[in-house]
Write a protein that binds this DNA or RNA. Structure first.
Lengths: 132, 132, 132, 132
DNA sequence: GTGGTCTAGACCACT
DNA sequence: GTGGTCTAGACCACG
């Protein structure tokens, strides 16, 4: 899987990493049980600090997306992904709300917005990247 | 207009402020041309430093949501809101994408997701708050 | 002469006033010896504070563009405009320099820049306004 | 690169800083990709508060002259400078216009003015300072 | 009284 | 050690 980082984004690198791995899982490119690169190899591959990779993996583990085994390495959670928890629903709404509010201000009508979301949903499912 | 800040949030205060003002505009609670509180009065009202308010106002001005008149104060942009620019569309997609990817991982199907977005859209339009 | 003020400009109103009067003189619309409106009438005409008009007039007088007579009112300096003083040349260079530097950064080549200046020079001479 | 600030100037310090950096880029003294001093080191070097430097850097970033990398520091935009946008052209004309009007009033003829601009253009390109 | 600017000093996230 | 954020308190220009 190819990781693309934007070093001048305002998003922390570990967040970009998490997003890309989650998107890889969403698209099916990474399947449950599949190995992820070790902290060390990934760090050297993409040229970032070990701590950064570690932080991303640790957070992904906390949220249930991956498992970290001391010796065996890192795998996409073979027991499947976390479900729809109340905490998740709240976080999702908190994130979505300001974006939707801005869309309303900018006169994006509801149908248009839903169409944008739907189209992104399909893109991700089919593994289409932002730059594609 | 009532401002609610979460001092524990990982979102900077000035960002929370921007979001609330944008949502106020989206809901129609704040209308184009309407006065916003002065930097100092808002700062003392919600108990934060005036520089924090200033930063939020300055950014909102840069994005075209409000106007700042040197000695008269701050108003919601009477010339209407900024439209749908290519930069906005790109920013929107960048923000939406990781949220949708996570939704896919958590088995939120497309219809459900669209329904969530639609419901938030309506809530904001009708001025319903998160805690309501 | 029509005065157009932009209340949301970052330029102080008195500066905008000075600029417009100077441009009026440059275009020939205001001729040496010609009367300017009194502080009071101009203030009420364009709806700004007396102090603001006063400040603009006082500064214009200090630079030699106009004369203020206690009873007779304000006139464009009948003895002609101030000339090219060393102070003026220095001020001019200080103002021009950062604008030219930015133009260079943005790849405005010398010919293009000179053409812009020349075209503005002609516009002003012929009294063509910004919005025309 | 040597920064010279005039604490008596009516120009804000952060503006003077922006101007000097832009001129440094224009003259070729600062090249795309080159590091700029960190906020803190520059602040202590020239004896101003770090927030003042921060404001200058943030604005230069917004205009596309520099990039700010979260933990690595600040560099001249390696992707090159911003181009000639309509907003830039408008801003440029607004700034140039009153200066040209004053020049006309003071009987600076067109050829002389163009010569002044051309000479400043060349000075900046060759890195000649105001006081040199 | 308004926003604009600057200072001084602090804590935090990130790498 | 870097920039990001926030606070507290001050002076100034403007109208």
């Amino acid at each position: 899987m190819i990781i693309r980082l934007d070093m001048q984004s305002d998003l922390p690198i570990y967040t970009q990493l998490m997003n890309q791995i989650i998107e890889g899982i969403a698209s099916g490119e990474l399947k449950p049980g599949e190995d992820l690169p070790s902290v060390r190899s990934l760090a050297s591959d993409i040229g970032v600090n070990l701590h950064t990779i570690n932080k991303a993996y640790t957070l992904l583990k906390q949220e249930g997306f991956i498992q970290i085994h001391r010796q065996k390495g890192v795998v996409v959670n073979p027991e499947g992904m976390p479900g729809i928890t109340p905490e998740y629903e709240q976080k999702q709404a908190e994130q979505l709300r300001p974006m939707i509010a801005e869309a309303i201000c900018r006169s994006v009508d509801k149908e248009h917005l839903l169409q944008i979301v739907e189209s992104l949903y399909d893109d991700i499912l089919h593994g289409e990247k932002e730059n594609a």
